[in-house]
Design a protein around this nucleic acid. Structure first.
Lengths: 137, 137
DNA sequence: CCGAATCCAATTGGATACTG
DNA sequence: CAGTATCCAATTGGATTCGG
């Protein structure tokens, strides 16, 4: 749908169906969202499987319900694996898939680009204290 | 805060304050969100200023209220300029800033990466309905 | 231990009406 | 034309309780 050119402008082509385009947008939004990003981050840091409780501890501020939902979505998107060990008490481990790891690398690249331009964004916010919009954290 | 290495793993360093890190995360989330991305997209396509009404027409499915909010946020983040021409009836034009254009390039890069991996994501979604995970060992 | 279920507060977004 | 204001429906997230 979109190609960015060397000169910083764009070229728009129609190689994706609407459904594919919508799916790509959705994945982009999900992967950049607050909780999924932080969860993938934690799992990447761990460099191995983590139990539910460990993830809950390390993702500061998340509730158990939201973590469960986040992990379910990540799992159904193929970014995280969920492994149940049928013990008593049960043990469940989550791990980043190769696909999830690759996606995280890409997202982090964008994140770093933004971090490098932080002075610009900070300056903009000082200059235009208009809408201190949609921030929760 | 995070550096991705050649081998696909990560290295975590502490060059940003918590506040800066939070800001970068917030910008990442905003720029990847549904409406802001589509609005920036439209403005980039236009390759010049667009009136409010034109943007409203071209961003399919957005309401006037949400478009106003979205543009306010983009403006206060320095991604879009708002120019008011004090006429009757008033005319207001929005245009992508250089910073906004650069950010869009980066986001589109990620978007394209995702689009290239769409088969993987589609496959994951088909496979994942509610299969009870099998133990690995 | 994991997480589903329930209840509830807060936020979001659409539709409509109104103003400079 | 480009909003702001208001009302309302839908969604989201926290806290708590219960169950395998």
């Amino acid at each position: 749908m979109v190609t960015n050119l060397d000169d910083g402008t764009f070229d728009f082509c129609e190689t994706l169906t609407d459904a594919q385009d919508a799916l790509a947008r959705e994945m982009l939004e999900r992967a950049s969202a607050k909780w999924p990003l932080r969860v993938m981050h934690i799992l990447a840091e761990a460099k191995g499987p983590l139990r539910f409780s460990r993830v809950l501890e390390r993702v500061e501020g998340i509730s158990q319900k939201v973590l469960t939902q986040t992990l379910r979505t990540l799992e159904s998107d193929g970014l995280v694996t969920r492994t149940l060990y049928p013990q008593v008490p049960p043990r469940v481990e989550y791990e980043l898939t190769p696909l999830g790891g690759e996606l995280l690398v890409e997202v982090v690249t964008l994140w770093q680009w933004i971090a490098n331009r932080l002075p610009d964004f900070e300056a903009a916010r000082v200059k235009a204290p208009r809408a201190e919009a949609t921030s929760k954290s």
